[in-house]
Write a protein that binds this DNA or RNA. Sequence first.
RNA 1: GACCCGUUCGUCUAAGGGUUAGGACACCGCCCUUUCACGGCGGUAAUACGGGUUCGAAUCCCGUACGGGUCGCCA
Length: 491
Amino acid sequence: MALHAQSRLATHYQEPGTKHHELRTSPTLDHRSHCGTFPAMTVRTRFAPSPTGFLHIGGARTALYNWLYARHHGGTFILRVEDTDADRSTTESMQIILDGLKWLGLDWDEGPGVGGDYGPYFQSERNEIYDRYLAKLEASGHLYEDDGAIRFRVPDKMITVSDAVCGEVSTNLKEQGSRRYDAETKKEVEANPDIVIKRPNGGYIFHFVNVVDDIEMAITHVIRGEDHLSNTPKHLALFEAFGTTPPVYAHIPLNLNPSGTKMSKRDQGALIHEYQENGFLPAAVNNYMALLGWSAKDDQEIFSLEELKARFDLPGVNSSNSKFDYDKCRWVNSEHLKHLSAADLLTRARPFLTRAGIEASDVRAPAALELARDRAQLLSEIPAVIATIFAETVTYDEVSVTKAREKNDLSQVITALADGITAADDWTVDGIKAAINEAATGIGMKMGALMLPCRVAVMGSSTGADLVPVLVLLGKDEVVKRLNGFAAMIG
RNA sequence: GACCCGUUCGUCUAAGGGUUAGGACACCGCCCUUUCACGGCGGUAAUACGGGUUCGAAUCCCGUACGGGUCGCCA
């Protein structure tokens, strides 16, 4: 089902114009009057990005939480594009956001590319719906014109948000909105508390379309960043004016950068497409994002997406902001890397191997990947570990060579190694170890002392994959050739 | 500036009236590994501060400090 939706997305989402255009005639009370009353209601959550930039980790985490909540409760996850600001919305940005969600595996049941009964799913195509709702407010006397813009009269009373994460928060919009802070003069100035919902140019404003769409799309739970908590009373005022029960709100804490300020695109780990490029697994990114602001209340930290679906719920969400920790994110990735099936590992690593000039179809590739998965945290770190196996010529690391020279008569050691390995007749891990051991005994040394020189001579570096399995993969002829080449070089 | 939210090891978090305040990342040490890693074991490290309430407070209440957010004809 999910895969189907995604493949349709891949081929169709470029034509956002093709949408279901059925307008709902009785859009309000019928489907939501029971909201919050009966647990049997069908959960409907949405992710509503504005296509004005990249898919940011904060947005992706919001999408994840909404997706997880819907999936956990057997509900519906909707993708709605909030592109009312025509000047800032771009198709490139839309593309990046959809690609990012798709890469993460957060499939949507309704939205761009998959349609649904509550479309269109682009706000830029929903003007007739907004006009209708505007007319309702106008008829009930909630609106007035101000300099070509249309304002919604806010009520002069306390409005209480019952938030699933933050608890009850009360505000009087009239009181709050009649002053505003002027950033330039750093003073409070008189202000009009009534909110603009339509611009003089005819464009509708976020607060209005957001509420109308949540009503129209029968959204039951709004999970969003805590930066929206202060906006919520405005939204509740609109719901009340429409005579509609609002959804359940859950404002989740923000993710900050390591210095404790708002994440910007320049911060490490801020942009989802970079995770893909840097060799993270989508499951690991989801896992880490889930952990920023939510916990399973036990000691488990590594979760597959399926486990997350089973475990995630609103009570596990905490209410304080978190700071992003790239090291921990890498560690989570390494844990997922260890548990990947051999086939998946090959599939995921392929682009990185190719980029490093390693032929992923090489028969030795699967075995080489097994040698690399324990010592790489990111897919992008894999090639460096195993590149020497596939290299025509060995690249020698100066520091490693110096290290190999330190304790021994290196020429003597390499010669002994070359002779011993040439004589080896059992080309297996055990057979090779026996040969190395014999070579060591022959020159009065211990086997351990030959391992580093052998490693440097054959692999070019004192670090990398496990030596003996590498020798097996390389083949006897190649190993002897490399030993002799190294002997000549240092001779 | 006003209003709102928050504050447990450096970081992510658990404990939500009674625990030697637990786990994880990072860091350090030891062990394992005749190489490189993984791994195992251990260590350093926290209840922001001040008042209450209580036999007992990280936990409930008040204040302060600090951090974040909002105050758009952006979303």
